[in-house]
């Protein structure tokens, strides 16, 4: 297994309390597969992604758990080993292309860095490689774009640059944290298509984070649903869509338009707000918003259990379904 995450916990310390941004999650990522990570804003998707590269900013911290990348535990690596993995073996594409590029450095200067740092290439050798990359992500007039500054490019173009930068060294894992959320709807599909095609070409694994189940349906092989810092359901994409098990997953599916359903079906958003991660209630975190809640849900939080061999869910109601 390329990547194996075991019982990862990442907390932000605020004053005397902890925000349990990632609370005991475990998952795997196989070579070449695309894993969709879905959940409402604030459920810990970004925190989980940043943890994988040990990029959690203070006051956050990986509290416990293991992140095994090709058998090596990333949480235990020395800084030197860590730097050799970041950007080379595992690369990341961030949510907001407007702020993720350095405003005072030209596109070219930012693109050559991975080559110079990890491959020790000279600027001169790296520049043609960068132009090739820009062509690959279909940026027109790549040669002269190298000299442009981020503010001279549209959001979509900047995100293409980010994609090019992440893919520069053929990383084994690409983490894309809501790569199209900040962009115009009209270019979202095109960019995702591009990302998917290139990762497939390079046989890289993709961790595609989104809050849009529609995107996941199209691009992901497997999906995990996160709620309040935990994974509540994990399945092959098709299974998840055909037989969603967790009430939260069902709620999410009812709140987005689906291609294979009749269009007249009314979209119903999930009522209520996710709980405060600094102050989680006892029992199931979804209790307050759940339409099927029972007394036992309040007493103890359910853990992730296998329902069928490729389908896991954390819900008391599905316990006996085995």
């Amino acid at each position: 297994m390329l990547l194996k995450v075991l019982n990862l916990c990442t907390y932000y310390q605020t004053g005397s309390s902890y925000v349990r941004a990632v609370d005991d999650i475990s998952f795997e990522l196989a070579k070449g597969e695309t894993l969709g990570v879905v959940g409402e804003s604030g459920c810990g998707k970004t925190a989980a992604a940043l943890s994988l590269m040990r990029l959690i900013p203070s006051p956050g911290r990986i509290v416990s758990g293991k992140i095994l990348f090709e058998g090596k535990d990333i949480t235990a690596l020395s800084i030197k080993e860590l730097l050799s993995i970041r950007g080379d073996q595992i690369a990341m594409i961030f949510q907001d292309p407007m702020t993720a590029l350095n405003p005072v450095l030209s596109i070219g200067e930012q693109l050559v860095e991975p080559f110079m740092i990890h491959r020790r290439l000279s600027r001169k050798v790296a520049i043609p490689l960068c132009i090739e990359l820009l062509n690959k992500v279909r940026i027109p007039d790549a040669g002269s774009r190298m000299k442009s500054y981020p503010h001279e490019l549209s959001g979509g173009m900047r995100q293409r640059v980010m994609i090019a930068m992440a893919l520069a060294l053929n990383p084994k894992i690409i983490i894309a944290d809501e790569p199209t959320t900040a962009l115009d709807v009209s270019i979202q599909a095109e960019l995702l298509e591009l990302l998917k095609n290139i990762t497939r070409e390079q046989n890289a694994s993709l961790m595609l984070i989104t809050h849009n189940l529609g995107i996941v349906a199209r691009y992901a092989d497997r999906v995990m649903i996160m709620y309040a810092g935990r994974i509540v359901e994990k399945a092959f994409t098709l299974n998840l869509y055909q037989t969603p098990l967790h009430p939260y997953t069902k709620g999410l599916l009812d709140s987005v338009p689906r291609l294979n359903q009749n269009n007249n079906k009314k979209l119903t958003p999930i009522k209520g707000q996710p709980p405060d991660l600094a102050n989680l209630p006892q029992g199931c975190a979804f209790y307050e918003r759940c339409t099927l809640k029972e007394a036992r849900c309040k007493a103890k939080a359910p853990t992730l259990k296998k329902f069928t061999c490729d389908h896991e869910v954390a819900c008391w109601l599905k316990e006996e379904g085995k």
């Binding site: 690369a91 961030f94 702020t99 350095n102 740092i117 990890h118 930068m165």
Partner: peptide
């Protein structure tokens, strides 16, 4: 504290390189 500093770290730059280059 800006986002592009995080991008630089994600590329594998050391603290020193991030400081000097970015």
């Amino acid at each position: 504290g800006q986002d592009f500093i995080r991008t630089a770290y994600a590329k594998g730059l050391s603290e020193r390189q991030v400081l000097i280059r970015h």
